[in-house]
Nucleic acid binder design. Structure first.
Ligand SMILES: NC(=O)c1ccc[n+]([C@@H]2O[C@H](COP(=O)([O-])OP(=O)(O)OC[C@H]3O[C@@H](n4cnc5c(N)ncnc54)[C@H](O)[C@@H]3O)[C@@H](O)[C@H]2O)c1
Ligand SMILES: NC(=O)c1ccc[n+]([C@@H]2O[C@H](COP(=O)([O-])OP(=O)(O)OC[C@H]3O[C@@H](n4cnc5c(N)ncnc54)[C@H](O)[C@@H]3O)[C@@H](O)[C@H]2O)c1
Lengths: 225, 225
DNA sequence: GGGTTCATGTTAACCATTTAACAGCATTAG
DNA sequence: CTAATGCTGTTAAATGGTTAACATGAACCC
């Protein structure tokens, strides 16, 4: 088998930091900053400068050595790496509470993920308009995916229907699924899934809260002595 | 300084798996399964059995050695560890699109996080009813937090207001903040924050999609030769 | 009852990520 | 022109997390 294409064999932890780098750099760009050192950028993100340089090293060659990074070069370079140099056409499947909230969320568009369609089975929802996108029947989904070259789908249907919808999405050529249903989807290895698990998030928070409360109890006990 | 209280010095990676264990166990419980081995449970979650045992080992003593785990014992044990043995009173701050979707999300309640209040500054939203919770003015927030013993707040206000609201939450005694605004909150070390970053999620997905598309291009090229 | 099987708890080996260290280039001041 | 400073790219060390290995206990079968 052929060697994996350049810049794709990267630790997950690094991938998750790329958006944070990009976000911060765009902020700097907006206020007119031209140069930024690894130290400055890293400190503003609460990480070590060496980690940032190490991360960038996977992709190589952002700057003349000896000189700080140029914001204007780094931003498009990161966008290219992340895959959002061109807008990434996206659809939302499931126009319920969460689907509607996401459809209304302007940031998705701004960050490079324009919504090219919203789909649902519920006839009452079809025709509703969210920032210019109209909810369509599921029957239209495959056509839109193909015509618009949609590669990513945001899945906000009930867990019970998530797998069935996923199979349609995969068959229609979707390559990435952003899954909000609390269940694991079965997909071929040529499709990427990212699960957004609310329960995991709030429970991990709860764990930390419990630890904080316990340790403050301890402190109080200690003070009483 | 006193040794950290039992079961709080645990890797993040482990903490993030606890909710998955619990979820799967509850599912088993619902269909009447009484015993489950580390192997069975791990395989259903696509992890190694040794990792599961290693995770549990941080807390110790779930089972008689030599026998599988008892679902009926493990579920409450995990709930206690996560901190949801008793319902964890929660509020939502910001009753916009996302806040409303979350307010409507029954699962939060079911999983142990009953919503004790929803707050907003917009007078038009005040009085709206979501599954029995009525949107209240921000003026009421501190009172509700204290009267209901609220420990966790879900923050769904615009990024520009997130820090100011956070400071009020902290002053009122909130210990955990589930932050959906795309920005880093400054909080004292006695407060836990979990950032739910949509952009990070979808961009990491985009990265993987790009890699998949590139490698399939490669394959096509190879076939053409 | 002894051997076989299957289980956990625990420790040790392994692997990945993070952090530190340093070589080398660019700029600036003297 | 040289020394000093500040920076990156790169490699090496340290840390942390994952996986394997194994000692030991319980049940079952013959
Ligand atoms: N509401 C939240 O805040 C929230 C948060 C996290 C996760 N989730 C998850 O997101 C998903 C949606 O949640 P929600 O609150 O929006 O639920 P919802 O019931 O409001 O919306 C689900 C929508 O999916 C549609 N649907 C059902 N079957 C379908 C199918 N086969 N094809 C296309 N559309 C279909 C329904 O008509 C409905 O409009 C659920 O899996 C839920 O667990 C929701
Ligand atoms: N909509 C989404 O799907 C989505 C997804 C991910 C993250 N987010 C983030 O969640 C936050 C909310 O998003 P949204 O789409 O619901 O926005 P929104 O504008 O619909 O809702 C924000 C709400 O906060 C209220 N608010 C403003 N200032 C406040 C204050 N000081 N105190 C209390 N309430 C205040 C507003 O009145 C409004 O009702 C934003 O930070 C957004 O970036 C939204």
């Amino acid at each position: 088998m052929r060697k994996q294409r350049k810049g794709c064999d990267v630790p997950d932890a690094t991938i998750l930091r790329l958006p944070l780098y990009l976000e911060k750099l765009k902020l700097l760009q907006a206020i007119g900053v031209e140069d930024v050192s690894s130290r400055q950028l890293a400190e503003s993100l609460d990480i070590k400068a060496s980690q940032l340089r190490h991360d960038f090293h996977y992709f190589g060659g952002f700057s003349r050595p000896g000189r700080p990074y140029q914001v204007a070069k780094l931003v498009p370079a990161l966008e290219k790496i992340i895959g959002i140099a061109e807008p990434v056409h996206t659809i939302i499947v499931g126009a319920g509470h969460l689907g509607q909230a996401l459809a209304n969320y302007q940031n998705l568009d701004i960050q490079g993920f324009p919504i090219k369609g919203i789909f649902d089975v519920n006839p009452k929802l079809i025709g509703l308009d969210f920032r210019g996108s109209v909810v369509q029947d599921m029957d239209e989904m495959e056509t839109v995916i193909k015509d618009q070259g949609v590669k990513i789908a945001i899945l906000t249907v009930p867990a019970a229907h998530a797998q069935a919808v996923t199979e349609r999405l995969v068959a229609a050529g979707i390559v990435g699924i952003f899954n909000f249903a609390p269940m694991d989807l079965k997909v071929p290895t040529t499709v990427a899934v990212r699960n957004e698990r609310l329960a995991v998030g709030i429970m991990s928070l709860s764990f930390k809260v419990k630890c904080i409360l316990q340790s403050s109890e301890n402190k109080e006990e200690a003070e009483e002595l």
